[in-house]
Amino acid sequence: MSKLYLVPTPIGNLEDMTFRAIRILKEVDFILAEDTRTSGKLLKHYEISTQMHSHHMHNEHKSIEGILKRIQAGETCALISDAGTPAISDPGFLLTRACVENRIEVDCLPYATAFVPALVNSGLPNDKFVFEGFLPVKKGRQTRFLLLAEETRTIIFYESPHKLVKTLGHFVEYFGADRQVSVSRELSKMFEETIRGTATEVLAHYTNKPPKGEIVIVVDGNRKA
């Protein structure tokens, strides 16, 4: 039966791949990958020989029509990102929406994405939270911080290593020096670490020790609001 599968992949440790995900990737007619070189290593590890095509933020607008035609013709497709669940700060939303609009079945396999373990091991309240993903680089950045300064729920961000210190500095400026922050780096990988403390303390740590790798930041909500 033709459909689109959204298949999460490990955020670091290849042992985190599920049995079902491996089976689906072997059974579908073709796989859409954010970076075929990165995904090629995963497929090779699990001896998956399914045909793979590139599908990323720079070509997804142009490629969707062709993908829909293949699925409507009876083929099954799996979409994977470089790491984690497709459409969570990665390509996937546009294709999923197009499939839904064209009454094509979409099946998203359950799996944790990077922010889930970062949130859980932060020690900060996780009964209510808001996922912000990546902050605006320039336009709208200050406005976003001003709005989030009043947010009472725990806030989750993704950040690149070369922007982390700048972002932590903005936390001190807009959220306050004593706001609790947890930074998880390289989750599930060999050099995984989580640094917790006030915004000032975490800023000082990474100012003295420049970070590397994938980063998730968890920030306590405004308890004074």
Rank of each mutant, 00 (worst) to 15 (best):
P8A: 09
P8G: 14
P8C: 03
P8Q: 10
T9N: 09
P10Y: 10
P10R: 05
I11P: 05
I11A: 00
I11D: 01
G12E: 04
N13T: 06
N13F: 01
N13S: 10
N13A: 02
N13E: 04
L14W: 12
L14F: 15
L14E: 06
E15R: 07
E15V: 01
E15K: 13
D16Q: 08
D16Y: 11
D16A: 05
M17C: 01
M17W: 00
M17P: 09
M17D: 03
T18A: 00
T18K: 07
T18R: 06
F19D: 05
F19H: 11
F19G: 00
F19L: 14
R20G: 12
A21V: 09
A21K: 10
I22Q: 04
I22C: 00
I22N: 02
R23E: 14
R23P: 03
R23T: 14
I24L: 04
I24V: 15
I24H: 12
I24C: 04
L25H: 10
L25E: 09
K26I: 04
K26F: 04
K26N: 12
K26M: 02
E27N: 11
E27R: 07
E27D: 14
V28H: 06
V28S: 02
V28T: 07
V28K: 03
V28W: 00
V28M: 01
V28C: 00
D29W: 02
D29S: 07
D29F: 01
D29A: 02
D29I: 02
D29M: 03
F30V: 05
F30K: 00
F30L: 03
I31G: 09
I31Q: 08
I31P: 11
I31F: 09
L32K: 08
A33N: 11
A33P: 13
A33S: 13
A33G: 04
A33W: 12
A33V: 00
A33R: 08
E34F: 00
D35Q: 10
D35M: 07
D35N: 15
D35F: 04
D35A: 08
T36S: 07
T36Y: 00
R37S: 08
R37K: 14
R37N: 11
T38F: 13
T38N: 13
S39A: 12
S39W: 13
S39N: 15
G40N: 10
G40C: 09
G40S: 10
K41R: 14
K41D: 08
K41A: 10
K41M: 08
L42E: 10
L42G: 11
L43K: 07
K44A: 13
K44E: 14
K44Y: 13
H45D: 03
H45E: 12
H45R: 14
H45Q: 11
Y46V: 02
Y46D: 02
E47L: 12
E47V: 12
I48N: 10
I48H: 06
I48A: 07
I48C: 05
I48E: 06
S49A: 11
S49T: 14
S49Q: 11
S49L: 06
S49I: 04
T50Q: 06
T50V: 07
Q51K: 14
Q51F: 05
Q51G: 00
M52C: 15
M52T: 15
H53L: 13
H53V: 07
H53M: 12
S54K: 09
H55Y: 15
H55V: 06
H56N: 15
M57R: 14
M57N: 14
M57V: 15
M57P: 07
M57F: 08
H58V: 03
H58P: 06
H58C: 01
H58M: 00
